[in-house]
């Protein structure tokens, strides 16, 4: 089965209630995102950062058969892709940090070395860590941040992707973003509004 067919089928299965397929979907989307991010590096040359929203859309158009999917399946796809994107960015950041330290025993393959990620590695890793903590406190809030932060989805789209109401997304975002700000900005700014 072609990748595209597989993704569409996976999404249909997930839509009909079989959540176990989410991991498989993640693997496929993650692989494709990584591949694309590498091959697209020329496209973003001269630009400091990777356009993740565009990447995810490209992966979607490539992997899914849009005409066969209803909105909810698409939303699932983007939700999964947001997580996969987070993983792609974190992997790049970790490799970049490893390369900088010169700690790695293994030589980095060339294609990984000039991977498109050239953003702030420390920021990315700190965020990743913080999100890991947030996930312990509220998995849903972590997903909301992934959708909005890594995939650039708006409130309505995030709500669709995660099968929750828009009000929930708004509140989760408000609380989670405040919490992340506190985690990531030290020392604390003067309190009070």
């Amino acid at each position: 089965m072609s990748e595209s067919g597989e993704v569409t089928r996976l999404l249909e299965t997930i839509r009909s209630g079989d959540r176990r397929q989410l991991d498989r979907l993640f693997d496929v989307v993650y692989g494709e995102l990584r591949r694309l991010a590498r091959s697209n590096r020329r496209r973003w040359q001269g630009n400091r950062t990777l356009n993740t929203t565009a990447l995810i859309h490209e992966v979607y158009l490539k992997l899914a058969s849009p005409e066969r999917l209803d909105w909810q399946s698409r939303a699932h796809f983007f939700g999964t892709a947001a997580r996969a994107m987070r993983q792609v960015l974190i992997n790049y950041a970790e490799r970049a940090r490893a390369a900088k330290r010169g700690s790695g025993e293994e030589d980095l393959p060339l294609e990984e070395e000039d991977a498109p990620f050239s953003g702030s590695t420390e920021d990315a890793l700190a965020l990743h860590e913080a999100l890991g903590k947030l996930e312990q406190l509220s998995e849903r809030q972590c997903r909301v941040v992934e959708c909005r932060f890594f995939a650039g989805m708006d409130v309505a789209e995030t709500a669709e992707a995660l099968d929750v109401s828009a009000v929930t997304v708004k509140r989760d975002w408000r609380a989670a973003s405040a919490w992340l700000h506190r985690e990531l900005s030290a020392p604390l700014p003067p309190p009070g509004r």
Binding site: R48, T49, L50, N51, T52, T53, I56, M85, L89, P116, F117, G119, S120, D123, A124, L127, R148, F149, F150, A151, G152, M153, D154, W173, S177, L180, H181, L184, S185
Partner: peptide
């Protein structure tokens, strides 16, 4: 803060 972080990282920014 998250907006500027997203841009530094190349993530999609909250729209």
């Amino acid at each position: 803060f998250l907006g500027s972080l997203a841009e530094r990282m190349g993530a999609g920014r909250p729209l």
